[in-house]
């Protein structure tokens, strides 16, 4: 009898240890987005100069929507990646932004000092557009294919490789 019981206990123990190992090694800050595979919602608002803009597919080209703020330190390290990406892929894609919970003067100063890789930045002072998109921190980046479907969402500062991989997904 006791020998049979080990056939139950051992696999159960292995399973539990496996689950524990998985839980301990996975990143608790990474939240898989339920928005991947869904259409990017159209959101209307204003850019940093008060002009009306519409978030979604821009100029009918695959579009990257980057969420940034001047108060976000990680965005600064990401900024050069975006500048390089805009230079490299600018003809084939649209790169726009959501300026998240930011004061206008600060946001404008940031872009004039560091360079502006975006066609425009949607000014989301209240954070409601961000909430509509499941944004929980900055920087975040959405990659939208030509059909307007979100193919990737990165909730971390982009690297050149992540940018290139995202662009590749947009053209799949």
């Amino acid at each position: 009898m006791t020998r049979h019981i080990w056939w139950i206990i051992l696999p159960a123990l292995v399973l539990l240890i496996g689950l524990l190992a998985y839980g301990l090694t996975s990143n608790p800050k990474h939240i898989p987005s339920p928005l991947i595979g869904k259409a990017f919602p159209t959101l209307q608002g204003q850019d940093l100069n008060g002009n009306p803009v519409t978030l979604g597919l821009v100029d009918n080209k695959p579009t990257i929507v980057n969420v940034w703020a001047s108060w976000c330190a990680a965005c600064r390290s990401e900024h050069n990646v975006l500048l390089r990406g805009a230079r490299r892929y600018g003809d084939d894609i649209s790169l726009v932004a959501i300026n998240y919970k930011d004061e206008l003067p600060n946001a404008r100063r940031w872009l004039s000092r560091l360079g502006d890789p975006y066609q425009w930045s949607f000014h989301d002072l209240s954070g409601r557009a961000g909430l509509e998109l499941g944004v929980y921190g900055v920087p975040e980046t959405f990659f939208i294919n030509k059909k307007g479907i979100i193919v990737e969402k990165i909730s971390a500062p982009l690297t050149d490789k992540m940018f290139a991989d995202g662009v590749a997904l947009m053209f799949e």
């Binding site: 939240i31 898989p32 987005s33 339920p34 928005l35 909430l131 509509e132 998109l133 499941g134 929980y136």
Partner: peptide
Amino acid sequence: FVDRYGDY
């Protein structure tokens, strides 16, 4: 909220 942030 689930639609935007997932079951998390």
